[in-house]
Write a protein that binds this DNA or RNA. Structure first.
Lengths: 141, 141
DNA sequence: TCCTAATTTAGAATCAATTTAAGTTGAGAA
DNA sequence: TTCTCAACTTAAATTGATTCTAAATTAGGA
């Protein structure tokens, strides 16, 4: 997402702050993350503004909405095609730019017109591994 | 999931009805779908029972919880490793049993211990294609 | 500068999911 | 058989994320 891409929507201070936050925090934040950070600059800002802005940016295809967490939307300001590496402990999401050739055999098509694919890799991130290692005697999952 | 796998939890009539529903409706239903269907048989059954049962079955690894829809959990009673084919219009989910070899190059590991992967294919299902075709003049997304 | 549609705001409403507390059930012990 | 206790079910309250609403404000073009 590039600021200059935002042409046909009004450039309000709140929106610019939200966009700046997304540009600088590429950890796939939730709406709450965005709200918390941006409302420090704009204490009167409401949640609706965050959601409205994120929705608008999504419409303009400047960000992508992720369904990786149930019960919570997360947003990705990198719209290049890519995959994800997700920590099953802390739910941090990392980007993966390797391309994979995924040919679905015809008999699995189920009558679909296929338009894309996405791979999620699951694992345990370095930080969570280290924490696990430390507490190995009184290990609780 | 097989009934006989359920050993160390009580086999109540409500639970058996929920399991039967999951066995017969492999469309990856939501908790609401399960509740709607099973409460026809047990009109006094509460939502909490559905959630408790689904949670318990998940713990026992007899079903899988999917995060494909934001804001709503969906459940898959097929615990064999497999991928999904998702209609971007109606959100129906189909199973894909083709196996893919997905080698993540070392420099993309980001310090993770990788434990698995999952592929989502996106497309438009036959039903939605047909509906689209019909209304091609007054086409609305 | 003026105008107007777009945007922001606080608060209410909604929806999915979880928690709570009270009542029920059923398998094993006495 | 009756007692007991833990597991289970239930309705209702609560939480958390999101959406809606209606009134006030504002960006950006005329």
């Amino acid at each position: 997402m590039i600021l200059s891409d935002i042409t046909d929507i009004k450039q309000t201070p709140q929106r610019l702050a939200i966009i700046e936050y997304l540009e600088l925090n590429r950890v796939h934040p939730s709406a709450l993350d965005v709200y918390k950070a941006v409302s420090e600059k704009f204490p009167t800002m409401s949640f609706a503004t965050v959601y409205n802005t994120l929705e608008k940016l999504k419409e303009k295809r400047l960000i992508i909405e992720l369904s990786i967490d149930t019960g919570k939307k997360r947003f990705d300001c990198d719209t290049r095609p890519h995959h994800h590496l997700i920590c099953v402990k802390c739910r941090e999401i990392f980007d993966v730019f390797t391309e994979f050739i995924l040919e679905l055999p015809e008999d699995e098509f189920q009558g679909f017109d296929i338009i894309g694919n996405h791979v999620d890799f699951y694992g345990i991130c370095k930080k969570c591994k280290d924490i696990e290692g430390l507490g190995s005697e009184q290990n609780k999952d």
